[in-house]
Computed example of a mutant assay.
Amino acid sequence: MDKIRIKNLELFAKHGVFPEENALGQKFLVSADLYTDIRPAGLTDDLNASIDYGMVCHKIKDFLEQHTFRLLETAAEKLAWSLLTEIAGLKKVTLEIQKPWAPVGLPLETVSVRITRGWHTVYIALGSNLGEKETYLRNAVESLNQADGCRVEEVSEFLVTEPYGYTEQDDFLNGCLCLRTLLTPEELLALLHKLEQEAERKREIRWGPRTLDLDIIFYDDLVMDSRDLQIPHGDMQNRDFVLRPLAQIAPYVRHPILKKTVGGMLADLEHSQKI
């Protein structure tokens, strides 16, 4: 990925733990690596095809001068979020905020915080088999699109599927969506659980009926196993109701462990079901 670098932008702001820092202020130096696709601008010589680093410098200066934070960590986090959500074409940013006048009572050159934040591509499976099924799914899509740090990029058709596991229940309506998000996997999982709770989902029977079911299938190429979350979804390759809608919007996305595309996994599953 291409990068535009801003180094040691100097500004005067009021961030710090001590009251006098918030009142009097001090010097800060900010460096930023802006990750984007520079090729269109390089081929056309058109500034509109790139990111205007002069505009970014003023955004950084205005943001840090207009806000006051106790911690450099918070200043960096909030600034990164602001840049990523407001600047078109910015895919990832590395920020370093230096505090050369840090009041530590010892001689030093500077104290700094450095973070990297960016947009992630996530595929989420949706399902419902209680009440107004389509309404539950469409409300979930809209809620995700309106959530801070989230942008729904594409949504599959909603397909009627037979229940999986526990079969003594109504047919499901299933779909998948592609989401761009700044949230971590854990933060996204918490958001999905919140939306399920708002839909009054009850977890009484494993694979049982539910008003709304939201599962993370892929999160970039991440592979993780924790007590609460497994990515990629551990049983997706065996679930027709996941693979069919997912293949509509992401047929060539490759499973980071199985090394098969979504379309390939669907073909394998359909072949095994025929046998």
Rank of each mutant, 00 (worst) to 15 (best):
P163L: 02
T36A: 09
G89M: 02
E162S: 09
K260D: 03
Y252T: 08
A80F: 01
E10M: 10
K202M: 00
D228L: 15
L9M: 13
C57W: 01
D52V: 12
P245I: 06
F28N: 00
A199F: 05
L192P: 03
R70V: 15
I4S: 11
D235H: 12
V56C: 13
A199R: 03
A267V: 03
A247I: 08
S156I: 13
K27C: 06
M224T: 15
H255Q: 08
R117H: 15
S31D: 08
E132S: 14
V30N: 01
N145G: 13
K61V: 10
L84E: 04
F241W: 00
M236D: 06
I87Q: 06
L212H: 03
W101N: 05
V104H: 07
G131K: 07
D235R: 11
S82I: 01
L11R: 08
M55Q: 06
D213L: 04
C150G: 12
L144Y: 02
Y53A: 10
H67I: 10
G208R: 08
L90H: 10
I4V: 10
E96W: 02
C150H: 09
I257H: 11
H15M: 07
P19N: 01
L189S: 06
E73W: 10
H58P: 00
E65H: 05
G105W: 12
L95H: 08
I205S: 13
L188D: 09
C150S: 10
I231W: 02
L11A: 06
R138Y: 04
L269G: 07
Y123K: 09
L159H: 11
M1T: 02
W81C: 15
Y53H: 08
V17M: 12
I205N: 11
L84Q: 03
I257R: 14
I97V: 06
L266G: 07
G263K: 07
A125M: 04
E77C: 01
F12Y: 15
F158V: 14
L212K: 03
L144T: 04
V56D: 09
K61T: 14
V30C: 01
E157I: 08
